[in-house]
Amino acid sequence: MARTLNFMQAINEAIAEEMRRDPSVFVLGEDVRVSPFGQTAGLVEEFGEERILNTPIAENAITGAAMGAAMNGMRPILELMFCDFSMLAMDQICNHLGQWRYITGGQYPLPLTIRTAVGAGMRMAYGHSQSLESQFIQAPGLILVEPSTPYDAKGLLKSAIRSDDPVVVFEHKKLIFGGVEGEVPEEDYTVPFGQAVVRKQGQDATVVAFGFMGYEALNAAQELAQDNIAIEIIDPRSIVPLDKDTIFESVEKTGRLIIVEEGRLRGGLGAEIAALACGDYFSLLKAPVQRVAAPMIPIPGSPVLEDLYLPNKDSIVRAVRRVC
């Protein structure tokens, strides 16, 4: 049986169920007991303060502490409240977390899940709004996922918690606060890593849209349909590993590729997929690859400027029209 849950409820339920299932799972992070956004709200009542552990404000050190716990038999879920703040923990994440298993010859896998909030549009200006997923893709050994529906939020988070590999889950603030709803089964399920999903079928162009950008792409599809342009929208769900098969099977059909991300353009997720397209899949392309991403500027505080900064339906429509 499926019920309708919002994005935040799906995350909360995934954590609660995994904590009931496995006593080695616990949550730590800044203010996880009160939980300012609500993803871990109420869990302390069921699981107690030891397993819902408030930490000092010290991102690098709490990441290291979570890694240490993962080295010694626990499966921590670490919350780094804003992805902007995760930059304080990049020594642990990029220098050590993903590489630890390899460099110890497989002796020490680190079953650690990091949850962090990305996304602008909440009028939080430059320090609480960035989508910094592409900062993580250079680090070997990490799994990176970004759900866009309650179903995927729960299923990917469960896969992350059960994985012996370190996983970073990017949660978009508009999905958390905006209360996006969706059907979520009552019975246990997981969403495997590396499996994209086709959100909308179409034969004219392939639009790969990460996370919240999938909703902008759906809006763009409606507008483009008025001109008889049918785009196919793919939600990769996993950034690493990336489901190249689903993406390029679609490109084989459409011959056109547009990659949409909320993060910035230079060296972004779109750059990586465009490079793949121009290499192994060049013969599939009938038109130049298009990237839709944020410009290389800080996120301005002014609501007017912030809206101009963000990739959206209109920028996707423009990019599609350039090649269709």
Binding site: A61, I62, M67, G68, M71, N72, N95, W100
Partner: peptide, 23 residues
């Protein structure tokens, strides 16, 4: 569990292994 090069990164890891021991 291992040895880091960016010195001091393991300070907090040691706190984490001890946290797990206690839990």
């Amino acid at each position: 569990p291992g040895l880091v090069s960016s010195l001091g990164a393991d300070f907090s890891m040691a706190v984490g292994t001890a946290l797990a021991s206690k839990m």
